[in-house]
């Protein structure tokens, strides 16, 4: 159903138009932070010693989907790590 054009809706639309690039940049910063977190979690698999690896492994089920998105985004069609077979 189409929304009725009200003043409030118009202002929302105007705000959306102008804040589009800003939201994009904030999302990019957050994604970079997530990527860093991913690196910390799986650093052991890359040969960087991580004393908390045993515990971070527990995050595996929560993070595996993000890992899949990450390797696709990095231009790798299949998972680059042997230990993680997301696809």
């Amino acid at each position: 159903m189409k929304k009725k054009p009200t003043l409030k809706r118009l202002i929302e639309l105007y705000d959306e138009m102008l804040s589009l690039p800003h939201k994009q940049e904030v999302a990019r910063e957050l994604r970079d932070e997530d990527d860093l977190f991913l690196l910390l979690v799986y650093s052991d698999m890359l040969g960087i010693p991580n004393p908390a690896f045993y515990y971070t492994l527990e995050l595996y089920p929560h993070i595996v989907e993000k890992f899949h998105d990450w390797h696709l985004r990095m231009g790798m069609e299949k998972s680059p790590l042997d230990g993680i077979r997301c696809c």
Partner: peptide, 12 residues
């Protein structure tokens, strides 16, 4: 993105 929003962004 909604076409009106994208147009506004593109134009500005």
């Amino acid at each position: 993105t909604n076409k009106f929003v994208l147009w506004g962004h593109h134009f500005t």
